[in-house]
């Protein structure tokens, strides 16, 4: 079993390549999810500000 993971003498090269791919692609895929959360938060705050100022105008 261990032999399979060692890949002859090339284990370090192969595994680091796959690992790097996992990290880079994982980050690229994960980033939009974080962005989405931030955008929702920012926009909902913006809309709340707007509706508040609208209400004030109506009251006045």
């Amino acid at each position: 079993m261990m032999e399979m993971f060692q890949m002859g003498k090339y284990g370090a090269y192969v595994w680091s390549s796959y690992g790097l791919a996992l990290i880079v692609m994982g980050y690229v895929a994960f980033k939009p999810l974080l962005d989405k959360k931030a955008i929702f938060k920012e926009l909902s705050m913006k809309y709340r500000r707007e509706s508040q100022s609208n209400n004030k105008q109506e009251q006045a």
Binding site: M25, A29, P32, D35, K36, L43, Y47
Partner: peptide, 30 residues
Amino acid sequence: LYYGAVVLMRARNKVLVTEQNNRWVKEIIG
């Protein structure tokens, strides 16, 4: 397919920002 999924995710975020003055975005975000 990975590219397809990620690019759509990113594009959705961008669309929300660029269309932020439209009503449908306001409805989605609530």
